[in-house]
Each structure stands twice: as C-alpha cells, then as structure tokens.
Design a protein around this nucleic acid. Structure first.
Lengths: 116, 116
DNA sequence: CCATACTAGATTGCCAGGCAAACTAGACGA
DNA sequence: TCGTCTAGTTTGCCTGGCAATCTAGTATGG
C-alpha cells in the first residue's frame, strides 16, 4: 500500500499542519523524523524534512506544541514535541472546519450534470 | 445560508481551479463574474475577481477551457468560457484524486485517540 | 446633470509556504 | 575508510490567493 500518487503541494499545504499536530497528539509525543515516516505510512508520502520541520517550528511559535530535546542513546538527539491545550483546541476546531469545507467542495465537484 | 466562515486561502488554493472548471461545465458556458456569484452561493464566499480571473487565464493557457468575447446588450461585454475535452478529462481525474486525498486526510484527522 | 452603484474585466504587489538541495553530525556495518 | 541510516537545519525558487486599484458601460436617484 505505497503506490501513493504523491499529492500536489497545494493540497498538502492545506492540511499539513493539522495532520502533523494530530500525529503528535495520537502518539503522546513525537519528533520530526518519525512524523515524516508516519505521514508516509498513512497515505501522504514524499513529504521531507525541509517541509515538516518548518511546520513544527510554526506550531511551536503559535503555542500549539511544546518541545523538549533529548540526547539519543544510539543515533543523534531528538527533539520531542507534545501538544498543548491550545493546540488541542485549535486542532479540533480546524478538523471540524475542514470536514465542513470538504463537504461543500465535494457537493460542487460531484454535480455531474445537475442544474444550478 | 450565507453565514459562511470565509475559508482559509490555503484551502481555497487547493480546490479553486477544479471548482471553477466544474461550474463552467455545469452551465454549458459561463463568465468570471457569474462564477464568483455561483461559488459564493455554493458555500465558497469571499472569492473576488482578482482571484478568479487569473485562474481562468491559467485554465485557458493549459487548454482546459476556450473563451469567446461577446458584446453585452445592456452592461459591459462578457468573456464566455467553455470546457474542452482535455478540460473534462483533467476535471474528472482531479476530482477523483481529490476524493481519494480527502479520504486519507480524514482518516488521519479522525483517529481521535486510536493507536498507531 | 451629476453622483452613486452595479456589472464586468484586468493588473499590480504582498506574502505564505511546499519542496529540492545542501549541510552538519552521530552511529554502525562492510 | 566509506557508505548508509538517523535526525535536524537552512537557503532559495516558485506558485498562487488576495487586497487594492483601474477602466468602462449601464442604470438609478436626487
């Protein structure tokens, strides 16, 4: 299940931040590299570090995650992210709005030959 | 039914071109100003001419619509757009991919507390 | 007769953000 | 020693929404 089309960047752009934050929330904590792997496994492949790390910085700057650096036992250190209460609020609001939005768009795109 | 939230531009960006093309297809022909009205009526308000007209130009440059200028009986002239066969192909492909994409995103965003 | 508003289109400039590419650096295997 | 994997950061390109501004034709109201 990895014949994924590699979605257009404008689509990724629309949902990247919420998807990343949801990953952080689902695991109680996570770090950039792991998030990249997770997104790929969940149907959003081809998203690299140069895309994800800036998003994490923005999320932290907006107070939606906190970060903590930990030395690695084997391998390089990792910066672990945890969701904040504000992050949880924003995530649920954004997810709800996204569902509403996609419903309206789907209504537009699926009116095959229907009259106005 | 016009208490619409005015969606973030990154979301609009993701779907504007297909939505506009679908409008052109549904009416057999349409013009920029009418498309703006239609989108507003269908749940995508706040999209102005400065957004729609460049999209129509791109669609035409890519061969997905043809345009024809007509003088107005009362009021200014209008540039009517018609969908091309390539446009129809692209629209159906893009719509399908969009449905697939939103399904995967929804799967990510709705895993409330589910394990990985 | 003039001001306002609506219809219709075009253009300019700002700004956000994905992404490729390159870089640092530790650990490990051949 | 060299390549590879993990892990993070930074730079620069390019796309595209959107506000603002402009032109112009028509209609309405004072």
């Amino acid at each position: 299940m990895s014949d994924d089309p590699k979605w257009p960047s404008d689509w990724i752009r629309a949902v990247l931040a919420p998807c990343i934050l949801q990953q952080v929330q689902t695991r109680n904590e996570s770090y950039g590299y792991q998030i990249v792997q997770d997104l790929g496994a969940r149907g959003l492949p081809g998203i690299g570090g140069g895309t994800v790390y800036p998003v994490l910085n923005r999320l932290e700057a907006d107070g939606r995650v906190r970060s903590e650096w930990r030395e690695g036992h084997g391998g390089p250190g990792r910066k672990f992210y945890t969701i904040t209460p504000q992050g949880e609020t924003w995530l649920s609001e954004t997810s709800g709005a996204w569902q509403e939005f996609t419903a309206r768009v789907a209504a537009i795109l699926t009116m095959e030959g229907n009259p106005a």
